[in-house]
Amino acid sequence: MQEMSAEEQAAFEHRLAGDQVLQFKVNEMKLLIIGINESMLTQKLEIFHEEVKTATPVRSIQSVKKYAYRKWLAAASVVILAGITVFYFATKPSLQEQLYQTYYSADPGLMTTMSSASDNYTFEKAMVDYKSGDVWNAIESWEQLQTANPLNDTLNYFLGSAWLKLDHQEKAIPYLQQVANKQASVFNADAHWYLGLALLQQGNRSEAVAEIKKSDHPQKGALLKDISNMNNK
């Protein structure tokens, strides 16, 4: 409604007044949006509460009155700080990060035949998305399948691989852990390798080493040696 001109809005409201089906649809849409927003607001309130309980310094009356001005200043500070931080880390990545970048190479994915069986089709279409770089779409499809089959090692392995491809190591770890715990899985050894790399990138060296040792990756020995050298620095 906010994007309509006054004339369009008046015409829409006129139509709405005489059309019960449209009224229902508009109301349903409104409630869907309220529900989405309340879900997000609920999460926000938990964060605000933590801040209240950890005694965030109270803003003065004057500073509140200058809220709009301060907001821009704060935003500018955040941008500058973020810029400095990004610059610092871009120019000086941690040793773990350097090793991760050296040894990580995305899983190339599986061959696809685009079977007509519905679940296989969804899986394989997602695999095409994964390989062509449309990783968000792949994750979306695999997540749906994984919800119905939470223990499926193929889905868990490729969800982990997809999150790694997007540089979300923290999201990849739980999926890869499931496959790493499943010795019978054909993806078990690879899951150990990628899990080890993800843990390394996250700064968890000891667990990373344990996982990498269980993999059979050709670069396993070299990576373990580099981590050992890093520990000695």
Partner: peptide
């Protein structure tokens, strides 16, 4: 309805 949306959104 809104409560249902919130559950489904999760």
């Amino acid at each position: 309805f809104i409560q249902q949306v919130k559950k489904s959104f999760k």
